[in-house]
Each structure stands twice: as C-alpha cells, then as structure tokens.
Design a protein around this nucleic acid. Sequence first.
DNA 1: GTTTTTCTGTTGCAAAAGCAACAAAGTAAA
DNA 2: TTTACTTTGTTGCTTTTGCAACAGAAAAAC
Lengths: 210, 210
Amino acid sequence: MNLNFDVESFTKDFENCCNKVQKKTFEKNEVIMSYIQKREQFCILISGNADLVRYDLNGNRTIIDHFTTNDIFGEVFYYVTTNNELLVEAKSKCEVLIYSYQNIHHKCKQNCKFHQKLIEYLPELILNKVTDLNMRVELLTKRSTRDKLLGYFNLLSTRTLSKTFKLPFSLTDLADYLSVDRSAMMRELKLLKEENFIKKDGKFITLLYK
Amino acid sequence: MNLNFDVESFTKDFENCCNKVQKKTFEKNEVIMSYIQKREQFCILISGNADLVRYDLNGNRTIIDHFTTNDIFGEVFYYVTTNNELLVEAKSKCEVLIYSYQNIHHKCKQNCKFHQKLIEYLPELILNKVTDLNMRVELLTKRSTRDKLLGYFNLLSTRTLSKTFKLPFSLTDLADYLSVDRSAMMRELKLLKEENFIKKDGKFITLLYK
DNA sequence: GTTTTTCTGTTGCAAAAGCAACAAAGTAAA
DNA sequence: TTTACTTTGTTGCTTTTGCAACAGAAAAAC
C-alpha cells in the first residue's frame, strides 16, 4: 500500500503545520502499532519492513499484511472487526512516521498540505487495500496447500512479469501468510519440485508449467 | 453493503438525467453480472437476494459475498485481480438497477443528483467493503472447520446481540462461504452439538458457551 | 396435492494436513 | 570466530478434512 507522492517533501509540509507527528525508530521484533482499539493514528514506514500479524487463541500466527518502504498503515485501512489483537511487528530495524489525527477525513485547522494530500490520496489507498484483500480472500479460499502455493506463485509471477521471482517472505512466514502448517507446506513444496511444477533455489522460485 | 439513502427517490433522480440506467428482472439461478472483464457498471438490488461466487478450476464453488435488498455491487468494489470468473448469481427472483457509467468517480455532464450522491457515498461503501473483507480474511485464516464455524457464529451473535440467531445461508452455501467441504462441516456441526457448544434447530443456532 | 428438485444428515474410506521433534544450514550476535 | 538463534528440511504418527454415495426431509414447481 504505497504512497505515490514524495514522502520527503510531504514530511516538510507537516513539520510546518501538524505538530502531532513523530518520527520513531523500532528495533527488530518491536511492536510498532497495536490495533486493539481504534486509535486515531496511522504510520508511514520510512525504512525497514514490518508485518501486520494476528495471534489467535490457539497461538497460531497469521500474517495479514506485509509492509515495506513508503507503505502506509493504520486502522482506517482495516476497520477492525476482530476480537483478536492485530499487531504491526518490525521485521528489521524500522523508521516510522507516526501521525495522530482527530479526523483523517477532514481538513485540519491549519489546512496544511499534508492533510490535503492525504485526503486526496485516501480513496486510492483504500481501493488498493480492497484489491489486496480480494487477492487474499482468493488465495485463502483455495482448498489445498498446493493450490494456495501455486496461487501465490502465480500472483508473484504475474506481478514481476517473470517465471522466476523471489519470495518476499521466509518460508516460515509464508506458511503464516497462507495460513497453513509449515511442515505440511514444506512437504508440498518438495512434491511440487519432484513433480516438476517448480524449481526452487533458496527464496527464488521458477514456475515450470504452462 | 447497503446504501443508506432512499433508493426510490434516487431512482427518480437518475431517470431525469442519466439515461444509461436499466431496470431488469432476473430469475433464480440467472447470472446478473460477470466480473470477468472490467465493465464500467454497477448494480443495486431492489428486491431478492444474490451471491457473488467464484468457481475454480477444480469446480469448487466459493461464495465471496451475499447481497440482499438495497445492496450495491460492481467491479469498483472488488478491483478484481483474479484469473477466475466472478459471477453474481440470483438466489431468488431479483429486481436490479443496472447503471453504466463512464467514470464513477467524476460528475456526469448533466450533473445529476444520482452521481452527486454516489460520489458522496462511495468512500463509505468502499470502507464497508474493507470491513467485510477483513472479517472474511479473519474467518478464512482460521485453521480448522470448527474454528471457522465458531468464528462465524460469534460474528452473527455479535451482530444480532443475541446468543440465538438465524443463519442467512443454507448449510450447503455456508460450507461454500467458509470454504470447507459440506460433509466435513456437517460432521463438525454434529460434534459441536454433542459437545454442547451449540444448539441447532433448523437454521437457528444458539451458542451455549461463555 | 403430487412430483421434482434441492437440502440435510450420515457414513466408510482415502487423502491431506497438522503436530512434534530433530538435525543441518544459515544468519546474527558476542 | 565462536556462540546463539533462526530458518530450512525432513519424517513418523495422529487427526482432520475431503470425497462419494445415499436416504430422508423440506421446499419448490407443476
């Protein structure tokens, strides 16, 4: 969920106006944000990468979303309905801009450019979220681990316009993203290799079919 | 995904202006809309109910969404990324308003109220969609049929503010919605009854725990 | 009010997925 | 560079899920 305007100039804008913005640094595995209650806040990731995860009562971890540089996240993009806590966890050292607002949809009193741009881009950002979520639902509704894997690989292949691509996750995290058991997923990956559906070299996957 | 303004007066508005609107009737099981390509069109369901479904290559049917009176649907709410065809199927006789637009986000030349209201409500409608999708992802990431069922029941219980509620689906459709095998789901339902987690009388479910 | 179709409920069996545990490889930290 | 930690790869065993098939109940169509 990437902002396609320049975050640097953007930063200057709000420094001149909306003083409720902080720049913070998080170490690996620190919690950047918790969605347990609706805090009027969102974040832009300046550097590093982080995951939006949920832990259920059985201790299963699910990766809901994955953020990299310039991605934006916050409750407004989720409208959380869940009982479970959602956490944004830093996967590496992260620099984050944290913006607290009274009402994201309306202009601030100072009428700063930050807000203007945000309101302008918000519908687009939210539509991107819808696209992501639809894609996610499509993957998750696949009945078998094999179909989930192939579905995800197809997606990456389509995105990169290449039969070979690099997984953005560790295999452990990929299992949490596809919501399957890691060992079962590894077994399925082995079968896919043996049956010549894919080639795998570390995090690089090549599709061999079609 | 419900419009919370009066569809009747709304209808008169665009009859006076945007002439690209049709009212159509569909019989049960007819396809109201296909999302295979991005047609610039959306629909409002005046009466009846319909499902947004996807059939995958293995013939599995998945119910993505369920529409009732005054619900609105169309590609703009999905931004389809899939290879599979999405279909809106009438579950009963349906009356539908079909609106073709050049650009949903911009005013039409005649500047009619229809468009005005639509543009006004669109962000809200899309945010509702995000909420639905998040809820859906939450359900689908549950690892077992049992957890999916209980998760869904909890949701209905929370919505109706009652331990007893009526399933909006047939059990067959519920299985397609939760993306599990129907017979496995029936087995799990039986176990849940036997273990006194739930009581079931036709489509009425009562939660017995907590 | 009878027929036809769909939905519910059930089961045996086969296949898939999850669990637990561990070793080896890779990566980060001291 | 040694140590600690994380990730990958693997496997035996158990549990869950899916498949296929069928009978009875309920609903819809005639």
